[in-house]
Structure formats: structure tokens, C-alpha cells
Design a protein around this nucleic acid. Sequence first.
RNA 1: CGGGAAGUGGCUCAGUCUGGUAGAGCACAGCGUUCGGGACGCUGGGGUCGGAGGUUCGAAUCCUCUCUUCCCGACCA
Length: 573
Amino acid sequence: MRYSQMLIPTTRETPAEAEIASHRLLLRGGFIRKLTSGLYTFLPLGLLALQKVAAIVREEMNRAGAQELLLPMVQPADLWQESGRWQKYGPELLRFKDRHQRDYCLGPTHEEVITDLARRELRSYRQLPANLYQIQTKFRDEIRPRFGLMRCREFVMKDAYSFDVSDEAASKSYEIMREAYHRIFRRLGLEFRAVEADSGTIGGSFSHEFMVLADTGEDTLVICNGCDYAANVEKARVVLPPEPAEREEAAAMVKVATPGMKKVERVAEFLGTTPDRVIKTMVYLADGEPVAALVRGDREVQSVKLKNLLGADEVEPMPDDEIWKRTRLPAGYMGPVDITIRLVADQEVMGMVNAVAGANEKGYHLTGVNPGRDFRPDVTGDLRQVTADDRCPECGAALTLTRGIEVGHIFKLGTGYSEAMNATFQDSDGTEKHFVMGCYGIGVSRVVAAAIEQNHDEHGIIFPLPLAPFQVIVLNLGVNNEATCRAAEQLYNDLRAAGLEVLYDDRDERPGAKFKDADLIGIPYRVTVGRTWEKEGRIELRSRATGETSTMEYADAAGRISAMIRDELAARQ
RNA sequence: CGGGAAGUGGCUCAGUCUGGUAGAGCACAGCGUUCGGGACGCUGGGGUCGGAGGUUCGAAUCCUCUCUUCCCGACCA
């Protein structure tokens, strides 16, 4: 492609709205433009990158035996009423009526539509397993779209759905997808981890998230330094260290005045102890009911774990004044002893001896509190957020906390949807059974942003070769020199003939501008035809990633460069 | 929805407090000189100052309402 013929509106200045690197660079590099909040136009360069990701995803999905189809984006409400999600899904589901006043929504995901298709078309166990996928635009009316392509309302997603005869078969389908996902992200050239995850509103029993590691990620992950274990902190299991051989003797419970001491640290200091000897009591609203959650004073409640432990649909912290209104418990002085609401304790709390806790009376705490003797929680379990000081639940090695961007998520769905929508097939024994389902998403447009988030420098994007919009950019630095133009043009044609994706910068621009643009848009290899060619008959090759520059005979260039790129791509397969 | 910030030429912003003929840089067009890391000079085009109402002789500037965007939070495959 000739640069002069392509709409690549790069800018020197950064639009004020862009906070993070990928957003800033996608705008500056002329990949995307914002239409309005959460809605972006893909310009030619942006579309090429998107198509690169889509192509790799498609290849690997097909290789894994999935079949591509295309489902409608507009979906009738009655399907969503059948699954129950017309009620359950919040305002994120964009609903509207057609001219006949019938209810519709824009598809934020496609379980209903695909399940409807399956119950019509998949009648026999002989047709299973089946894995159907599409690459399509999704719409979710996000409360707060942000960070450019990272969190849009409209975005491109690959979603796949598997249908199996049994749970074991579904597990096999899940495994096949898990491997396919590993291949996809490896081929894309991204540093990523598959982590154990919470399954969220889509529901289901088991799930993994695929996370691209980047400091600007919205999720926090724990990664084991010793084994393969990795998990989202929402889910990461905390293992208790072995109990100390000698246990402190239980003392009597004593009420002490602690005026104005609402923070754990202050209470601990005031009573001459440390936060790890204090029981922290937090009140949450779980499906409308207040619940007290206990963790050690130096720990944090992980609300997703709390939600799962309670089996609740929704859990949110209660503001102090709400707590007082609903329960007459004084914020800052709450404790488990004789508490009037449901009590959930982190496993670690149960091993505490002679702890400090609020007395449920303003200005007072209790010392010598002993779990089991002085209070009994309704539920006990793993409730707190992991820390970098915890050990791996699998192998006991040290853990690292890091940030990640969720680019893929796979779920074992079970029979939730097939039962709700009565989707069945006839098994080999003649009985009707519900499909055991799985669903598998990849945020295709988000991958582009995540890749940039992970691969950029102060000059611009550094695209991994597999998803770069072009593999090579040829800079003609002698647009006024006929011979140079001929040479550059010939090289452009030779590289294309060798099967490479080439952008040819034939613009009448000064060299500086061409270098800057080439760096900004992140094309992995840059070939310069200019002064060095005019003087020595050699061209220069530079790697965007490493900055390494070499020169080579003009005659050898096309062959050497194409061989190098082919090798590099092959190494990732 | 709660908290914060901002809407002035295509972009980045100044001007607003203290009302008095709408500005700069970048970008764009023309001419000339330049030409290996975003050149320079001259000339030029382009703005109902987000919108509506009000105060005033006079409003980008003051008041009221409203819309939009961005950031933090809640929420979220």
C-alpha cells in the first residue's frame, strides 16, 4: 500500500481525552477516531490490525474444530425472557422497540440466540460435540466507557459456544478451547497468563480468564513464582499457614473504652497491640440483607469471594449511615460478639486468640475475644484478598501480584441455558437430554489495545509482527531523486511479490517526519532507501522493537528481508 | 448514579477572576528557500466561543437552566 493513498491521519499532539498509552497511540497513529463516548471508528490502519487478530483467532478456532457462523446482533426479547436474563441483565442491555412495539435488544452476548439455534438444529447425539463461533460486534451499554478500545460500548468479539452430550464431554470441549486460546495468544506474540477466574453474570461452574500482562490492566492477578498457578485476586485461594505449636491461653473478655478509635490501626496502637490481633468487621448488603464479614485487621475483604461464599447474586459494602439505620450497629465499633445480623468469618479469623474486636457500642472495644467461645459465625471460609506475602495454594512457593488486561474468558456453562430454554437432543439410549454447554470469548478489539499497552515506547507503538497492520515499511527518502524513487519503488514491489505486507512511504515529506510516523504506527521493520543507497548502493533495515540497524546490498534486500520475516512468523506457530 | 474537571478554528490551548473590535502554536492552502529524526520565511482561508434563556448600552467573560465529554468511585465478558 502506498502511504500517500492511505488515510493515516497521525498527529503530533495528544488528544486531551486519552489517558493510557494504547488510547493515546491509537489516536495519534491514526488507527481510530471517536464518534461519541464508547463508540469508535476504525480507520484503515486500525482495521488492518483488527483483521490480523481476527484472522489468527479464526485460524485457530477452525483448527480446533469449531465452525464459524454469524448470528444477528438484534435479538428478540422473548428469547431473553425465556432464559430469565431480560430481568437479570441490568441497564447494560440496550433495549428498544420496533415499529410494532415489540421488544428487542442489541446483543451483548449470544447464549440465547445460539441455544435457540441448537435446540432447532441439533437433534441427535450424532451431531455432537458441536462448537459454533462468530466474530461480531457486540453492544454493551457500559456505565462508564473508558480508555479508548479498552472499554467500549461497541466492540468486536469472538464468541464460541460448545454443545456436548455430557459433563465429561463438555470438559473435553473446554480443554480443547483452553489449548486453542493458548495457541492464539502465543501466536499473537503477547505475554499472557491463563488464570482461574470468577464466572460472573454469565454463570457456570468453572472458568479461566486470559490476561495480557500490563501495568495499566484493570484486573489484579497473582502468579506463582514456582509453578503454573495463576488466578484473578477475585478468586485466588488463600492457604492458611500451619497453626503454631503453642497456643496462647484464652483470656477473659474485657470491655474497654476506645473513644474516637474507629480505624483498626488506631485501636491497635491505643491498646498496645498490632492490627493482626484485631478482628475487622465489615458490613455488606448481600441481595438486600445486611451481613457482617470478619477478617483480620491487616487484611481486606474480597467482595467477590464473599458473594460466592454466601451464594448471593449481588454484594455491596454498606455506607456507615445505612448500617446504623438498618441494624443499629455503630460503624467503627462493630464486632462479632452478640451481633444481631448474619455473620461470615474468614478462615484465618477462626484461629485468632485473645483478639480485639468492636463491642457494638459506640466508643468501646472488647479484648480477649476468642472465636468459637465468644461468637460462632454462620459461615466460615476463604474471604480475604490474597497478598504478595501469601504462598501458592498449589506448591507453596512465593506469589507475585501483577496487573492484567482481560482479553479472553472461557466458561463451562453446564445446562443452565439449555434447561431454561429447553434445548435438548436425543441421546444414543433414546432419551432426551439437555445440552451441556460452554462459552468462550475473546475481545478482538481489546486485544489490539492490550497489545499496544504491552508493547510501546516513548516514540509510539511496537507491534508484535503477527498483528502489525503491515510487516514492513519502506521509506523513500529521495522523493526528488528519480533514481532513488525507482529503487524504492522496485524494492516495494519485490517485497510484495515475496508475499510481505508492505507500506510504501512515497509521500513528499521530509525524512524526519517519515521516521517519526514509522515509529509511531509501529511497523515492525523499516527499510530506508535514501542517502546510503545513493552513495553505496545499500539500504538500511531497522527493527522497531530492538532498534537494531543493519545495511545490506540492494540486490539482496527483498530476499533477505522476506526470509527473515517468514522465519520469525514460523517460530510463533 | 455520587464526587471532580472541562467545553473557544480540524487538534492542543490562552483569553473568563476584573464585560468593551476573538488570539497563539500545530494542522490546512499558495509561493520561495530547504531536505537522514516532526524545517524556515511570507501570504491566506477557517471560529453562531456546546445550546437556550436572562442581566447589561454592550456578554466567550456575569446569572439560571440544559446538553456533551473526560477523570475517580460504584458496576462490568
